[in-house]
């Protein structure tokens, strides 16, 4: 059985790890820190590739029912948000949207401001009204955004009952463990729930939690809280790596390395001057187009050595790769696309 070491616990790393494990690889996944996918909206803005069915299957089996196609939702600012693959609770199929929306906000909750969302929706021709839940949350708590008290859900259900419209737009309140609340709320209020599309909150984290759960079930050995500190190369071949976590470091051998780290952040790529530098200085980094386009140079997801030759058994996926354009909000689709392609490359012809 081939052993793969995957570095990076974001969308690209998790998806690739699961795919590899399902193909019979023995996979170790190391990574630290919340990845960009956890800060995303958990919705894909560019159309999925061949992996569309695979991803939908993973999401649906975890109970996060999702659909691909032309989907529309409402952002936490009240703007209409178009995407290509998203959960049902936050989007509808284009042309099948609700006639009107009642926006319910929690006072002090930064992720959905009902007055603003209401006004924005009206301007875009969506009939709407706004309501406030009658209690205050301290300013930092809402980012955790979890209704911790059973009573809170009951208050919310009662407020939903008073809504004029059939569909109610809510802040993102449903981590994976609370997804069953959606049906409960709908049953108790007779209204349909629409979750506002929200970055930096529960939706991105939930998406990632689904991928992580799937990778774990597929048999990936997860090493959260570890980071790559050095690589052992023999000519153009990767032999092993040293990982650090807590007060310890350990050496790990593998047959293949997949780098799926982030972009220009402290632990992924380091910005030096106006260019980018690989903290490990093992591979070629392209700075063409500036830091935002820069990253590891690669040929068919094979990383290149400074000499320009391909590293025999080192691959790349996700935000760490150099690319000519980076579509706004398209990172999640790109990461998954890369993971799929890198796995194909690792499997060989």
């Amino acid at each position: 059985m081939s052993r793969a070491l995957v570095i990076g616990q974001g969308a690209a790393g998790l998806f690739a790890s699961a795919l590899l494990a399902e193909k019979g690889w023995q996979v170790t996944l190391a990574g630290r820190g919340a990845p960009a996918a956890a800060m995303s909206t958990g919705c894909l803005r560019s159309p999925p590739g061949n992996w569309r069915g695979t991803l939908l299957d993973i999401l649906n089996r975890a109970g996060l029912h999702s659909a691909a196609g032309r989907r529309v939702g409402v952002s936490n600012l009240g703007t209409l948000f178009e995407c290509a693959l998203a959960p049902d609770i936050c989007t509808w199929e284009e042309g099948n949207g609700p006639k009107g929306l009642s926006v319910i906000g929690v006072e002090g909750h930064p992720s959905l401001r009902p007055c603003l969302a209401d006004a924005m929706l009206e301007r875009q021709g969506v009939r709407s009204e706004h309501l406030h839940l009658p209690w205050k949350v301290p300013p930092d708590v809402p980012l955790a955004s979890r209704f911790l008290d059973e009573g809170a859900w009951e208050v919310l259900a009662r407020s939903m009952k008073e809504a004029r419209e059939e569909t109610v737009l809510l802040p993102s309140l449903f981590p994976l463990s609370d997804l069953h609340r959606v049906r409960w709320l709908e049953g108790h209020s007779g209204r349909k729930v629409l979750e506002a599309i929200t970055p930096l909150g529960i939706p991105g984290q939930r998406f990632l939690e689904v991928l992580a759960g799937h990778a774990m079930k597929a048999g990936v050995s997860m090493r959260p809280g570890t980071r790559l500190v050095s690589l052992e190369m023999e000519g153009d071949r990767f032999r092993g790596a040293v990982l650090a976590g807590g007060l310890e470091t350990r050496r790990l051998e593998a047959d293949t390395l997949l780098l799926a780290t982030g972009g220009a952040l402290p632990d992924g790529m380091a910005i030096s001057g106006r260019g980018l530098a690989d903290p490990l200085t093992t591979f070629q980094v392209s700075t063409a187009g500036g830091p935002l386009q820069g990253g590891y140079a690669h040929r068919g997801h094979h990383l290149l050595l400074p000499s320009g030759r391909e590293a025999a058994n080192v691959f790349g996926a996700g935000d760490c790769l150099a690319r000519s354009d980076r579509g706004y909000g398209g990172g999640l689709s790109e990461a998954l696309n890369d993971a799929w392609a890198a796995v194909q490359a690792m499997e060989g012809p």
């Binding site: 956890a38 800060m39 911790l148 008290d149």
Partner: peptide, 14 residues
């Protein structure tokens, strides 16, 4: 980014 707030078990308690 608020990742620390979402990870905090104290903030996660009523």
């Amino acid at each position: 980014c608020g990742s620390c707030l979402r990870a905090c078990p104290v903030l996660g308690d009523a």
